[in-house]
Design a protein around this nucleic acid. Sequence first.
DNA 1: CTCGGGTCTGTTGTGCACATCTTCAGCAGC
DNA 2: GCTGCTGAAGATGTGCACAACAGACCCGAG
Lengths: 225, 225
Amino acid sequence: MATDAPSALDRADALEAELRSRICLLDYAPGERLSESELAAEFGISRTPLRKVLARLEGAGLLVSRHGVGTFVTELAEQELDQTYALRLELASLAARLDPAPPGPEVLSRFRHLAERARALRPDPDSPRPLAQVIYDFIQAQALLSVNRPLMDFATHLYTQTARLWVHSLLTSDLDLAEEIQLFAREVEEVLQALEAGDLEAAALIHRAHVSLSWRRLKARRRGS
Amino acid sequence: MATDAPSALDRADALEAELRSRICLLDYAPGERLSESELAAEFGISRTPLRKVLARLEGAGLLVSRHGVGTFVTELAEQELDQTYALRLELASLAARLDPAPPGPEVLSRFRHLAERARALRPDPDSPRPLAQVIYDFIQAQALLSVNRPLMDFATHLYTQTARLWVHSLLTSDLDLAEEIQLFAREVEEVLQALEAGDLEAAALIHRAHVSLSWRRLKARRRGS
DNA sequence: CTCGGGTCTGTTGTGCACATCTTCAGCAGC
DNA sequence: GCTGCTGAAGATGTGCACAACAGACCCGAG
C-alpha cells in the first residue's frame, strides 16, 4: 500500500485524519475548545500549517473558530439532532436500494471482526474510546455496502454527528450504558447475519430499526432530564 | 438585513461567500486553476487570510490544492455524476416528505420573481452567468421548502455540483442551449404553480421529473460525443 | 531525430512576528 | 454592596520572507 512510504501523503492530510479521528472518537468532546498553540506544539509544527488543517475541518463542519475566543468542536442543536435522525432513517433504506454493493469476503470478515469487538465491549464511564472506536469502524464498514460515494459519505457524516452526541450523552448522563452497548452489539450481530445471507436490504432495515429505537431512547432521556 | 453593517460578518466569511458564488456561477469552471497570489491581490489582502478561506472551501469539497502545482476547482468524475443524479432523484421526494415547510408569501413572491427571470433568459453561449445565476437562486429558494437543514444543505450541495457540470457542458458542447433554457423556465413555472396551490409534494414530483429528464439528456449527449 | 538530465520558474507550504479582538479580573466611584 | 471602567492576558487573524515541490524548458549526447 501507499502507507509504506515515509511521507506518502502530505503531512497535512495525515494531520487532518488524526484530528478528525479525535473528534469522532470523542477525545475532543462536542463544544470543547481546541488551542492552536498546544496542537501545533504537540505535532511539532508551526501554527500556520495547523491552521490550514483546522480551516479544512471548519469547512467540513466539524469545527468553528471565533476571533479572539477559540476554536470549538461543533455540536448539533437539539432541533438539528431530530432532523438529522429523521434523515438518517431515510438514508438507511436508500443505501440498500441505490447502487448496492454486495460485500466481498474481506468486507464480511471485517463485519465479523466488528461483531467480536462489539461483544467484547465492557461499560467504562471513564473512557468512551473503546465504544466510540467500534462505532466509528462500524460506520466506515457500512459505507462499503453501496458504491454511491456521495450518499455514503453523507451518511457517514450524519452518523458521526449523531454518534458523537449519543456517546457523549451516554457518559454525561446516567443512562444505562451497559444496555446501550448490548443493544449496539446486537445490531452489529444482526447486520452481520443479514450480510452473510446476502440480503443487503435486510441489513439496511435492521440498521434502520436500530437507528429509530436509538433515537426514541435518546428523546425519552432528553425529556426526562 | 445584516448587510447594512460595514463589516458585520468577518471579512473571511464574506470572501468565502464570494468565492463560493464564483465557483457555483461558473466564473471559475470545473477543473480551473486558481492563483493564490492573484486572488490575494484582487481582494487587497495577503495570501495568509486568503489561504484560510481556500482551505475551508477545500474542506467543503469545492477546491483541491496540490503542492507546487496549484489550487483547482473540483469536478465530478463521470461515475460520481451518475451517482449524484441518482441521489438527487431520491432527495427530491424526501424534501417534501420530511419536515415540509409551507412557503409563506415572501417565499412565493421569490419563486414568482424567479419564474419571470427564467422566462426572460436568452441563450448566450459566451456568458453562462445569467443562466447560472437564476439556477443558483432557484436552488437556494428550494432549500426553503423544508426546515430540515441538514437535508436541504446536502441537496443544495449536490444540486450545485451537477448544475455546475450541466451548465459547463452546455457551453462547451453544441447542445441546444435554447431548448435547455426553455425547459428550465418551464420547470420553475410548474413548481411555482404547485406551490401556489399549496401542494409541496406536487412541486417535489415536478422537480424530480425534471431532474430525471435532465439527467437523461445529459447521458445521451455524453454517449454521442 | 530522439532521448536524458539539469536548470529555471512559478506554485503551494511553513515559520515567525505582530495586529486585532474577546474575555475577565481588579478596582475606583457611587 | 453594586456598578462600570480599565487594564492585562490570551485567543485567533494578518503580513511577510523563505523553503519545498512539480512541471516546463533548454541543451547536449547518442
